[in-house]
Design a protein around this nucleic acid. Structure first.
Length: 592
RNA sequence: GGUCCCGUAGCUCAGUUGGAUAGAGCAACAGAUUUCUAAUCUGUCGGUCUUUGGUUCGAAUCCAAACGGGAUCACCA
């Protein structure tokens, strides 16, 4: 039995029986703190059709619920608000159902499959804070979709070719002197990133010189010797010149090694990796197809376009006059490829909001081409992470490096832990694992608690705290519960039977109330593609449990039945916190 | 200029899809530990929900306009 669904179905029956109204969906809301009751039904919407006063409707429905629902102990009506108080036995019954269900909160398989593409790193620089937001979002949304019953494939498209890659290759060839990650004592991705910056500096210097000689800036950017050389290198790569390909492979190998270490550290992995070097020529057959069926058209210079003005977009180039691809050409090809490979019902791209327009165009084209999967495509667009100084820019060195950030957070976790001195019996390895869990919990929670589509601010000085609305706060609540569980186990208490009907305090009801909301939160998080809803939920649950902790004692409760209930309640909260944090990709420690 | 996103407490953010007197965390201040982990809890302080109009029983939420911030409108990716 579930309180909320019982009230809803009884309300439907009441509306039909008393007023002859068929209401397919009943909206219940939590009662505001200042009023008596837990659930509130708003009667205002019915005043017009029923031509009765809101309070009158409230009283009639309240009476009906009290008599027939079996879970409503009493009611009160304030204006048009019908506030319902709940029978104590109903709380315990509802709680027993969820506490003894190991899969509580997760939805059964729904027969649908979805691909989540995220991360999409460039192999010319290490990951920074913005990438972390992308990775954590993608990883979390994949987990949330799984919890909703989807069969999920996590995919990654590596941008391993192109002019930007050639820039770092060229700089390395010119200034590298055979440096290796070992000789430089740098992670591979950081070494390559260093040469990307070196290229940019040298390139800018050339431009300045040319401008000083009277060239316009625009012209200088196109004619600087370094950029011409990089373009030449790209041509050689495309012609599969042996030396160029060998250099490319060597440098990419270093980057992959570096990325691998970072991915491992942040707990992100992929089921399928696509490489742009394999897919960049795809899409031309789709251009042909579109020309044949009149979706695309040719301009006199032989370039191919699509007119999307009917969709409120513009004319868009899909193939250059010389027959070479643009970004969207490849994306058309890879989109088809992804669906051919996995036949997913849905496909999600986790990509920053600067590409909103690109994805509008991509999806519109797929629809015009009559792709059956076009309606299942979704761009999970997220905002940038800003610094107090403004935007992050790799080339100007104003980025927060991912590896560095996590290392810093681990150091903070260690300092704080030592200060508190609660784990002095831990081995070095156990302690390291703890610091890592806390560091990752703090960073992931920080980035995921904000609505994805909003841009957010990261203040390195004060942003990532371990107190208040943070990952470690929730981890700490879990740790307290684990401490109780260990002691309960020592007392020989086994948690396999339902709790008896015991008298409950307000705070205990609130904890149960919060628990019952978990499945809906998981469903909403998937519907809105928002891990932030899960983060918020975990925080709410931790907070209400901490309140309970301050008000009542679990293990020291003299009444045996009540003590058993509180232990079981604590376990349910612990399990739910673990699941919720798990959906965010955050692990829980046993002690901290 | 066109299109899209955003604007809520000093700061960082929620606000269950139109409901009651708008909520958290941080910061500041005051308290709580003979008790299961105080990385906790309680309290105080803090608001013209950018502005103006509209829709209605009722608006932070929907519509329109203005203002402010950002993105994008590349034969870059």
């Amino acid at each position: 039995m579930h309180i909320e669904s019982t009230i809803k179905s009884t309300l439907q029956a009441a509306l039909k029986e008393i007023y002859g109204v068929e209401e397919p969906t009943i909206a219940l809301q939590p009662t505001k703190k200042d009023f008596e009751g837990f659930y509130t039904f708003v009667t205002f919407p019915y005043t017009k059709t029923l031509r009765k006063a809101p309070a009158e409707i409230g009283n009639a429905l309240g009476q009906y619920l009290q008599e027939k629902a079996g879970v409503v102990s009493q009611y009160n009506v304030v204006q048009g608000f019908l506030n319902l108080s709940i029978e104590e036995s109903a709380w315990v019954n509802t709680f027993n159902d969820l506490a003894l269900d190991p899969k509580f909160g997760f939805w059964p398989a729904n027969g649908q499959s979805v691909m989540v593409e995220f991360s999409s790193p460039n192999t010319n620089k290490p990951l920074h804070l913005g990438h972390l937001r992308n990775n954590f979002l993608g990883d979390s949304i994949a987990k949330i979709l799984k919890a909703n019953g989807y069969d999920v494939t996590m995919a990654c498209l590596v941008n391993d070719r192109g002019i930007h890659i050639c820039k770092s290759m060229l700089a390395y060839a010119k200034f590298g002197n055979g440096e290796t990650p070992e000789s430089a004592a740098l992670k591979g991705d950081h070494l390559i990133g260093k040469y990307y910056v070196i290229f940019d500096k040298a390139y800018k210097a050339e431009i300045e010189e040319l401008v000083a000689d009277g060239m316009t800036k625009e012209e200088a950017e196109k004619k600087a010797p370094l950029i011409l050389e990089a373009q030449e290198l790209l041509r050689k790569w495309e012609q599969e010149d042996a030396d160029t390909v060998a250099l490319w492979q060597k440098m990419n190998g270093w980057v992959y090694e570096g990325f691998g270490a970072t991915y491992q550290k942040i707990g992100v992995h992929f089921d399928k990796i696509y490489y742009e070097s394999n897919t960049y020529l795809l899409g031309k057959d789709i251009v042909e197809e579109g020309l044949n069926n009149g979706v695309f058209f040719k301009k006199p210079d032989n370039s191919v376009w699509i007119d999307l003005t009917a969709e409120g977009l513009d004319e868009k180039l899909v193939l250059r006059g010389d027959g070479t691809s643009v970004y969207i050409t490849q994306d058309l090809g890879t989109t088809d490829l992804k669906f051919e490979d996995f036949h997913s019902n849905k496909s999600i791209w986790v990509v920053g909001n600067e590409q909103d327009y690109h994805f509008q165009v991509l999806f519109a084209i797929m629809k015009r081409l009559g792709r059956s999967y076009a309606d299942g495509c979704y761009h999970l667009s997220y905002g940038m992470v800003d610094l107090p100084s403004g935007k992050m820019k790799s080339r100007e060195g104003t980025v927060v490096d991912a590896d560095q950030l996590i290392a810093d957070m681990e150091a903070t976790a260690e300092a704080r832990t030592r200060e508190l001195g609660k784990i002095e019996d831990f081995s070095g390895e156990e302690a390291k694992n703890l610091y890592h869990k806390l560091a990752l919990g703090a960073v992931k929670y920080f980035l995921l608690k904000v609505d994805p589509k909003k841009r957010m601010l990261f203040n390195p000085e004060e942003s990532i705290d371990f107190q208040g609305n943070t990952g470690p706060f929730i981890q700490y609540t879990y740790v307290r519960i684990r401490s109780v569980m260990r002691k309960a186990e020592q007392m020989g208490i086994v948690l396999t039977t339902p709790a008896q009907n015991v008298p409950l305090t307000e705070i205990e009801k609130e904890v149960i109330f919060c628990l019952t909301d978990f499945p809906d939160r998981i469903a909403n998080a998937a519907r809105d593609y928002s891990p932030a809803l899960i983060a918020q939920y975990a925080f709410d649950l931790a907070k209400v449990y901490n309140q309970l902790w301050a008000e009542v004692s679990v293990l020291n409760e003299p009444d045996e039945a009540l003590r058993y209930f509180r232990i079981l309640l604590s376990k349910a909260v612990g399990d739910t916190l673990q699941k919720a944090l798990g959906l965010l990709g955050i692990g829980v420690p046993e002690r901290m």
